[in-house]
Design a protein around this nucleic acid. Structure first.
Length: 172
DNA sequence: AGTGCGATTGACT
DNA sequence: GTCAATCGCACTA
């Protein structure tokens, strides 16, 4: 959930990728640096960084303090504040608003200012609990990485139209 | 201080 | 399908 001056923007997380301890693909793999320090915060804190100079990526730290690991939020299903998201993205098509990590960050106006924020406390950006039926969870390789590319650590709501990339490979 | 490179996206052939 | 944009930062020296 995101609180902006124009109003509240919310979405349901429908796609994530895990970057676990000891994972060569993870930004924390080579130890703590200025950029990745938020990955080492208590689970539930935001790690935001800029990829390719163009797109912000939102992650949630996932371990105890001092241990670097996190979950990349790759896609949302837009719920509230869709007109605000359209304005932030400069497009009209709802399906493209938050389908992809850079797109959802733009729709929610997420940038480096939110790096390190505790997402378990209500604020300008936080994680709420929805009231959704548990769906089928699909699983696949992670997208766009070069190191350690074969682990099945991408998870998505099977068949959800707001999932970016492959939506078919399902396990469970 | 200089260099190289993305956990992507949008525009274009 | 291809490809460039664009910048914070890790890395080297």
């Amino acid at each position: 959930m995101r609180e902006l001056s124009e109003g509240v923007v919310t979405g349901r997380i429908v796609e994530t990728e895990a970057y676990v301890v000891g994972d060569a693909a993870g930004h924390a793999y080579r130890g703590m640096t200025r950029r990745n320090r938020s990955l080492f915060l208590e689970r539930g804190h935001a790690y935001v960084y800029l990829a390719y100079g163009t797109s912000y990526m939102l992650n949630v730290s996932s371990e105890t303090p001092g241990i670097g690991a996190g979950v990349l939020i790759r896609a949302l299903e837009p719920l509230e504040g869709i007109p605000i998201m359209k304005r932030n993205r400069g497009i009209e098509r709802v399906r493209d608003l938050t389908r992809g990590p850079g797109r959802l960050a733009a729709a929610l106006r997420i940038d480096l200012n939110l790096d390190g924020l505790d997402l378990c406390q209500k604020g300008t950006l936080w994680l709420g609990h929805g009231n959704h039926e548990p769906g089928r969870i699909g699983r696949s390789k992670r997208i766009g990485i070069t190191r350690n590319p074969d682990r099945l650590l991408r998870f998505f709501l099977y068949g959800n139209p707001f999932v970016s990339g492959p939506r078919a490979l399902s396990i469970r």
